[in-house]
Design a protein around this nucleic acid. Structure first.
Lengths: 325, 325
DNA sequence: TTGAAAGCGGTACCAG
DNA sequence: CTGGTACCGCTTTCAA
């Protein structure tokens, strides 16, 4: 691969001049003929600058690190994430997805710090300590953003509190006269990040008696749960999200139960599949900020780290009654 | 941030020794007391090596670049992708997601090359020319893998040919006695990468007369299509994937049509939602390789670029009859 | 067994 | 307006 020295040689100028021309340096005036020579030489050689060398010299990168677990977190969140990536890209950041499953907070912080990211956006898969945040900051991170339920000292808290979803669901069911409420908890690994707070949220609602119901994402598991439904004595169920809710509702209907007369069913995330069956599924609708919005927040934090410190609440949840409750 | 020089100073040794100790260099024998001193100094300072500096010196990176468009490509593919990322991470690669929407092949190749990735895995959002592949190779890419339907000269072709899905669907419907077949084509932007080959595949089936039917991912659009269904004179429909199929089937049932008597409905991707309605949805099941498998392929290509050159076929598709056809 | 020093590719200061 | 040069942090010969 040709370097800037090769370009300089071919153009008959110095490396400094090459750098000035190719970066459109404002501070320095370069004559038009020279500019042309340099550009043409670069073109001819197929010169491409070396990002690592540049950021080594600059002392900072444009990397935004996004730790990922490989969990199917559901359409609204993955849409949000990909929008976020896209928006960051437009602001000229380089998004690095760092699979961090199984790493401790210390290990993760160290591994991330090696890349000297200018910002880290953690969804909460990894529990970061204040010390970990400090490590990242020392390594050049101008913003460490956590999106879990808990705030971490030193980090910018952008709260995405899933417990609110559980609260809305349970409150809605209580309002409609139910006391004993089942809450489906996915057995599938990795989903606790979402399911645990949702369960806790439901538990926190006054007058509700909550019964956790483990269930896997399969027809068989749903059928098994439906088969023993009558013995549970539950008049209502909040099923983690719309997919689990639909799976369970289908099984309950097959079992001969009437929805909502015998059992009220509530989902979450307001997915389109909730409208495929009759009765239509009641759900908890979630309002996520746009990826653009968060990207701008990150950008501002990077440019002016001191400015943004207060806690931002990112998520709103509201119950939507359809026909299943 | 402390550098290796700081560690050296604190430990009372040279930078070279620090490097040897921290990288467990085999070629050099360092006394145990020295090792301890160095390790402790590094620990004490919270030293974290600088990845960019290291790879600048080494002359190569461990970056695998994954261009992304921000399109909802559906569960089986996104599961495959996240599994792939995870497997690459385990092989000690750094996965960089590069949002490349709207870039031309030339622009994309240039932007990617700046990072000097050791491998590029393109899903086919960007049409790469042989020249672009050459640019990437010159920039240090030991493997350029394309997963679209078409092979690119110089790249390792890993074929994921979506047209096979259309072929299977149409063939299944023809086999069951249908001639005039509607094919739902999503209006949603970005999905042509999948939908166009699926349509073409269906078109290629002998004895089938194909009618493309644009439809958006919404109840309204499905209802509108269902409302004019009787006037279309189609006995069967292949609906891009299970989600569109379910949306349409729901609308057709609401319209008073019987499935499969009046109209046979076929989906693709074998999603769980296909089993929520009655009749259960017939579908084209797709067999994707495991992320592990592809990651190993990439790894082998990186280590021995010459070895792998023949075209790998990654995807198998097979029609699964349930009750809707 | 350890240290000195060169150099990876760019950028930006200071001279001329 | 352009060139020389020091330096970013790390690895790796080569000498001592």
């Amino acid at each position: 691969m040709p370097t800037s020295a090769d370009v300089a040689r071919l153009a008959g100028v110095s490396r400094a001049t090459v750098s000035y021309v190719l970066n459109n340096a404002e501070a320095v005036r370069i004559s038009e003929p020279t500019r042309r020579k340099v550009r043409q030489a670069a073109e001819e050689l197929g010169y491409v600058p070396h990002a690592a060398a540049r950021s080594l010299r600059a002392g900072h990168t444009r990397i935004v690190l996004l730790p990922t677990s490989h969990v199917p977190i559901g359409p609204p969140y993955s849409a949000f994430l990909s929008e976020l990536q896209w928006s960051l890209r437009r602001l000229d950041y380089t998004v690095v997805e760092y699979g961090s499953l199984g790493l401790s907070g210390d290990e993760a912080a160290r591994a991330w710090a090696e890349l000297r990211p200018v910002a880290v956006i953690s969804l909460g898969e990894i529990a970061l300590s204040a010390h970990n945040v400090a490590t990242l900051k020392r390594a050049g991170a101008r913003a460490v953003i956590t999106m879990g339920p808990a705030g971490v000292p030193g980090a910018h808290p952008l709260v995405m509190d899933q417990s609110e979803v559980g609260v809305r669901a349970a409150a809605h069911l209580v309002e409609r006269g139910h006391r004993r409420i089942g809450v489906v908890v996915p057995e599938d690994e990795g989903l606790e990040l979402f399911s645990a707070p949702r369960l806790e949220g439901a538990r926190s609602v006054a007058d509700a008696v909550i019964e956790p119901l483990p269930m896997a994402y399969s027809e068989e598991s749903a059928a098994a749960l439906a088969a023993r439904w009558r013995s549970l004595g539950l008049g209502a169920v909040f099923a983690y999200n719309d997919e689990y809710a639909m799976l369970l509702m289908r099984a309950l209907l097959d079992e001969g139960l009437r929805v909502p007369e015998d059992v009220a069913v509530m989902g979450a995330d307001d997915l389109l599949i909730g409208r495929l069956l009759r009765p239509r599924l009641s759900t908890v609708q979630i309002e996520l900020p746009s990826g653009d919005h968060l990207a701008e927040l990150v950008d501002r934090a990077v440019r002016e780290p001191s400015e943004i410190t207060q806690r931002h609440d990112l998520m709103a949840a509201v119950a939507v009654r359809r026909e299943s409750t």
